[in-house]
Design a protein around this nucleic acid. Sequence first.
RNA 1: GGUGGCGUAGCUCAGCGGUUAGAGCGUGCUCUUUAUAAGGGCGGGGUCGUGGGUUCAAAUCCCACCGCCACUACCA
Length: 964
Amino acid sequence: MPALKTAPLVGRIPRQCHARPLTGYFPAVNVTVSIAMEYKDTLNLPRTDFAMKADLITREPARLQKWEAAKLYQQIQTARASAPKFVLHDGPPFANGDVHVGTALNKTLKDIVIKYKTIRGFSAPYIPGWDCHGLPIEFKVSQEMRKAGDTNADAATIRRACDAYARKYIDLQRTQFKRLGVLGDWENPYLTLNKEYEADELRMFADIVAKGFVYRGKKPVYWSIPCRTALAEAEVEYADHVSQSCFVKFPVVGQPKTFIVIWTTTPWTLPANLAVAYNKDFQYVTATVGDENYIVFRGLLPAVAQKCGWAAYTETPFPTEQLASIEYQHPFCHRTGKAFAAEFVTSDTGTGFVHIAPGHGTDDYNLGRANGLPIYSPVNDDGALAHTNDLPVEQQMPAELLGKSILAKHGKSEANEAVLHELRVRHALLHQENYHHSYPHCWRSKTPVIFRAMDQWFIKIDHDQFREQAVAEIDRVNWIPDWGVNRIKGAVQSRPDWCISRQRTWGVPIPAFYDAQGEAILDAQIVRNVADIIEQHGSNVWFEKSAAELWALVKPANWTGAEATAKSSDTLDVWIDSGSSSRAVIARRPEIRGKDKAFQADVYLEGSDQHRGWFQSSLLLSLAGNGAAPYKTVLTHGFMVDADREKISKSKQGGYEKPQTAEAYVNKWGADVVRLWVASQDYRNDIVVSEERINKVGETYRAIRNALRYQLSNLYDFDPAKHTVADDKLTGLDRWILGEFAKLEAEVIAAYDAYEFHVVYQKLSQFIAVELSSVYHDVIKDRLYTDAANSARRRSTQTALHRLVTGLCQMLSPILAFTADEAWEFIPGKPTGSVHESELKQSTFTLDPDEIGKWQWLKLWRERLLPELEKARQTKTIGKALDAKIEIVIPQAQNQDSDKDMLRELLNVSALKMSVGETVSHSIAKADGQKCERCWHWETDIGQNAEHPTLCGRCIEAVLQFKA
RNA sequence: GGUGGCGUAGCUCAGCGGUUAGAGCGUGCUCUUUAUAAGGGCGGGGUCGUGGGUUCAAAUCCCACCGCCACUACCA
């Protein structure tokens, strides 16, 4: 119960009373200052310990401690044990670094959903997770070990260090997430490094292996040179890049001085050139320049001529069908190549001929395969040019090129330079220029990736109509916003086979073996056996034991295949880790297990980049391994962007001056302001991060807080059990606000249900500013303060206030997790200890149609008369509204005295006269009579009581009751 | 290049075929000192991205374009 600030003492003279000569304010009344203050003490002025100043920075951590001590999350779960279930499954953030604002946005949105579902009576458990494996951690750890002088650590040792590193950041991030007010089972999160998780992931993998999805193949994959590993689609991002593009002459065999002209942006792939592609629908021409003939696509000849500086040339048609039999000499290798028709050859850039290196591009690979070319990729793991076994050595690149590094340093790539030099000395280079375009980069090292063919494990997307099934499954899911469906469909429809092997140590091992011939052995039963031993010992067992030991442990009893002589050292793509959570978490944890389908959650909620990331990997794995999508609804949000609308990326290079950690924002504004800011903007678009915007949200926060404070402060003597007034006995004004409030509640609930939190924010803040602050709260001051404390009218208004503050706290609580709970504690007779345990049931309060009509009439008059009062104020006829009396003339007496009183109250004037006349009119004048010392109304009945000569009749009654 | 999203007052958002386009915040002026490091009132502020079209009527539907953003694509 809130402590009373001051006891209402009659007769006691407060200290401050001499601060101002009050006599001037009470004209025609001969009183002393001390008596004036005495009457003030008979007013029911607001009292509360709910502070005006939020002081979130200190108050929020204290409340957090309180929640933890009370085990609030567990209490809520227990209380909702038998309630209908709502499961939001957490996408695991990466266990590295501080919590970024973008991650904070995501977690806050999830928490708003969970808290809303909980307050609507659902059982909505939240099990947070972390993604623990992967390159960034391995990088950091290897770096630290190198600094410490340890350069020769074995895989198991590195992995133990990675484990410790991940756990350290899980602890750090857990603290930061909690600080945001996110409630959940923080003591039992799911971690992709847990051995139970790894085991379930491998069992899922085993199912997919058993169904024939997994194969080993040699095809071009994204390769990150610094990371020395293959990458998946989800691990590349696009960035501007300057390529050293060039136009190159390929001499045609048997036709001296005649060349096919190709254009490439990657000169380093020329040593891998095995063919040239053309488009059979194009018209080609021979351009003669001096004594040389160049074959190009006719439509591009002018552009090529301009670039290559051909001042004058003649043009003769070259029959396209002859291209099929043409043979050309590689410009610097001792081999020849052929031309093949291909549809992907376009007419907008280049020459109409595409240089084909089957080991370095998807189109090239497919064309090469179709025409029996070797998948030749003369690049080693270091990203340097090298010979391979695919071609006779004498046909491969000259020795000068060997060892040249492809990776650009200071804008120059050794390999490109060397190839260009080779072309120049052989007079094969027609033109060279920088070409600006966006190019895929490694998401971790930020360097351009290369396409490189090598032996990898893949999941076959077109296995057994799987791609079509996936697309069909996508249509069964509810995507919010609905354009998300196009995103993921596009991603699935166009994606190549999934390269799932990584040449790294910090990950779940691919439990494959090799026989003496080097043939890979991947068997579902073996994978399951490995899962079992990993569940016991953790995945390090794979790295600690020898191939022979492992083989003995996991070889199936009825094995008839080849004997293993070596084990795989590859690990699984981390997207397999997090993508397996439907099996390893949803189906595993009883509190979130699905009813119809054990592995299926109600909602996934992540940033829109996850359409090609977690949404996709989860869908593909769950569909392949479980038979259906792991979610019913997928909610997507945009990103945090700065004032210039640039994405604030976690891994952005260059960095920001200001730290973009959640902590920085929370420490400056408090979690509730951050949460309110998140809620305030339409998260389906990007969320703009700027001081200006957060500060504005801070203003709204203060308005909300003040409204709650005003309501609480006027309930200090209200006991709902004793004083609640029945609906039909409430005054018209109170019924009106409750009617408005019921409408608001319906709108807010609808907005929450549609996950449109910015609408919740708008509706709530506007209701507080318009209906409450400028109308209701302003009008009820008079009756709350001056009526007798226990009068029916005052209790009626308190009944309304009590309902308002209760409902407001509940509607606000998903967003203002701390403040709503803080205010809740001050509500007399609150139904539960914390607002987060309470249940928001939709109100059934409605106004009668004639009441609604009456209020329309009243509001119309209020709108009409307020500007008139302002005019009177400006001419100094009155100061405040109470100094005025108003007369209005209406056509017919459709309203009774009570309506007249209501209008007077709504306008806060001392007197209102209503009369019937021909035309509508109104007039404003200074009020008659004298100003009552206590309530400041101007009344004509002042001075009728000898004991209280300065009071009006109403106040005399109140004061007499007060004394009694 | 392709696909998608967005573009309404300084800011955040409503409105999504029908009266002079709304709200809050901010801003200017002002009242109040009984929510007081609070509260009230009044005012200013918008070619609803641009240009066409459909319609009696368009911010709202259609088309084109412009701008911003995201995704996508080895432009070889």
